[in-house]
Amino acid sequence: NKFNKEMRNAYWEILLLPNLNEQQKRAFIRSLYDDPSQSANLLAEAKKLNDAQA
C-alpha cells in the first residue's frame, strides 16, 4: 500500500529531525496516523519547522 510506505518513511524522517522536541514529533506523528494521505505534506511541514528551529 502506497500510503503505508509513505507514512512509514515520513514517520522515521520526522523521528530523526534533530531540532524538533518530543512534543512536536508526537503531534506530527499523531497527524500522520489520523490522515496517512497527508504524509508528504506533514513531512514538509515538519522539515520546515525543523529548519526554523535550527
Rank of each mutant, 00 (worst) to 15 (best):
L16Q: 13
N41P: 04
E6R: 02
R26N: 03
L17T: 03
S31A: 06
L42Q: 04
F28M: 05
R26A: 04
Q53T: 10
N21W: 15
Q24D: 06
A10K: 03
E22K: 09
A54M: 11
E22F: 14
Q53G: 11
Q24N: 07
E6H: 03
A10H: 03
L32A: 01
I29M: 04
D51S: 11
W12M: 05
A52D: 12
L43H: 03
F3H: 13
F28K: 02
E45F: 14
N9K: 15
A40H: 13
W12E: 08
L16E: 05
R30I: 05
Y11P: 01
A44I: 10
F3S: 08
R26W: 13
Y11D: 00
I14P: 00
Y33L: 06
L16P: 02
N1L: 03
A52I: 12
Q53F: 11
Y11N: 01
Q53S: 09
Q23E: 09
A27P: 03
R26H: 04
Q24A: 09
N1V: 04
P18R: 15
R30Y: 13
F28H: 02
A52L: 08
A44K: 11
Q24W: 11
N1Q: 04
L43Q: 08
D35F: 11
K47F: 13
L32V: 05
N41M: 12
Q53M: 10
K47A: 05
Q38S: 11
F28V: 02
N41Q: 09
Y33I: 06
W12D: 05
A54F: 11
F28L: 05
P18H: 09
D34H: 13
P36S: 06
D51L: 15
N4E: 14
K48N: 12
L49K: 10
P18G: 08
E13K: 15
A46H: 00
A54V: 12
K25L: 05
E22S: 10
A54K: 03
N21A: 11
A44Q: 09
P18T: 05
P36Q: 05
N50V: 02
L16M: 12
M7V: 08
A52H: 11
A10W: 03
E45Y: 15
A27G: 07
N4D: 14
D34N: 10
S39V: 13
A52M: 09
N4H: 12
Y33P: 01
S37T: 11
L15F: 13
E22M: 10
E6I: 05
Y11M: 13
Q23F: 12
Q23Y: 14
E6D: 05
N50T: 02
A52E: 08
D34R: 14
K25W: 03
E6V: 02
A52R: 11
K47H: 08
D51A: 10
Q24R: 06
M7L: 12
A40T: 05
A40K: 12
A27E: 02
Y11G: 02
A46N: 00
F3G: 08
F3V: 09
P36N: 05
Y33A: 02
I29H: 05
L49T: 12
R26K: 04
R8T: 06
R8D: 04
S31T: 07
P36M: 04
R26D: 02
K25S: 03
Q24F: 07
A46Y: 03
L17R: 02
R8P: 01
Q38T: 07
P36W: 04
F3I: 14
L32F: 02
L20K: 00
N19I: 05
E22N: 10
Q53W: 14
L16W: 10
N21F: 15
L32E: 00
Y33R: 05
N4K: 03
A10D: 01
P18D: 06
M7I: 07
W12H: 14
L20M: 06
P18N: 09
P18Y: 07
N41S: 10
K2M: 09
K2G: 14
Q23D: 07
N19R: 13
S39G: 05
N1F: 01
N21L: 08
I29T: 12
Y11V: 13
N50A: 09
N1Y: 00
R30M: 04
P18L: 08
N1R: 02
L43K: 10
L16F: 12
P36Y: 04
R26Y: 13
S31V: 08
A54G: 11
K48S: 09
F3P: 14
L49I: 09
A54I: 10
Q38I: 09
E22G: 09
L42R: 11
D34G: 12
K48W: 15
A46Q: 00
